[in-house]
Write a protein that binds this DNA or RNA. Structure first.
Length: 259
DNA sequence: ATGGTGGCACCGCCA
């Protein structure tokens, strides 16, 4: 069995106790992390090594930053989607147990009609092109991370309010659908047809987690050879009992795969 | 109710 998880940590250093405790409790084979907000020279490798994991990471000061935490050796790491993007630290990939793992932090997009929103669409299209150029959906592959897009009305607490706004705009959703049309399977949706299950609750909305005013914007996507082996998927809300939870939570899936 | 969250780096930016 392979257990695979993703988590937008919103500062890996601020969340280290939560992540370490969660790792010991859940013991996933692979954990993809976004928004580490730390330069490579300051990445806290110690706690992960102590827990029996190796860490691949690429970060910068204050913003973005991604990491792949793995029990098994990871090979052929890549840190950029395309040349001009390499300083952004939004992309990291590696081969683990003969499966390519791609972990992304899609730009948030700020507001529809702005440069940042156009950049988000551009980045998503570049990722889609990258996937199509480098991989074949007939072969095993996992693509996970914070996509900053809710795909359907059931993926956001108030679709009427947010329709056409950032993270729930048809242009973003159309690109995300193209990943699925290419062959990737949304593993959470495969196991849970019901709405109201979220991975992100905005800090700026008072008591958003308690009131379940959330969004499903974090995904585990897999090609059919992997997706057909998924046994279960779950959103872990446990870390929210801690002092300072992230605004996202852990999303995990279990696959009937020997590692 | 003219405020209200959170992280980081710096006195504002990003989510």
């Amino acid at each position: 069995m392979m257990k695979f998880s993703t988590f937008n940590t919103n500062s890996i250093r601020a969340r280290l106790p939560i992540i370490a405790d969660w790792l010991y409790r859940e013991s996933p084979d692979v954990l993809c992390i976004q928004e580490t907000k730390v330069q490579d020279k300051d990445f806290p490798t110690g706690p992960f090594e102590k827990a029996g994991y190796q860490a691949l990471y690429r970060g910068q000061k204050s913003y973005n930053g991604v990491a792949i935490i793995s029990k098994l050796p990871a090979s052929q790491p890549q840190f950029n989607l395309y040349r001009r993007e390499e300083e952004e630290a939004r992309f990291i990939s590696a081969w683990i147990s003969n499966i390519p793992i791609i972990n992304v932090y899609v730009p948030q997009g700020y507001e529809v009609g702005t440069e940042k929103f156009e950049y988000k669409l551009h980045w998503m299209r570049a990722l889609l092109d990258y996937m199509k150029r480098n991989f074949d959906p007939d072969f095993p592959l996992l693509l996970a991370g914070d996509f900053n897009v809710a795909l359907e009305p059931i993926d956001v607490f108030n679709p009427e309010e947010f329709r056409g706004k950032v993270a729930f705009h048809p242009d973003e959703q159309a690109i995300l659908w193209e990943f699925l049309n290419w062959g990737l399977v949304d593993i959470f949706r495969k196991h849970q047809p019901e709405g109201g299950h979220y991975t992100f609750w905005d800090y700026r909305i008072p008591n958003s987690f308690k009131r379940n005013l959330g969004w499903r914007i974090d995904y585990i996507l897999a090609t059919p050879p992997i997706a057909e082996k998924s046994q279960r998927v779950w959103i872990d809300t446990q870390p929210r009992s801690w002092e300072k939870p992230s605004d996202h939570t852990f999303l995990s899936a279990e696959f009937q795969i020997d590692v």
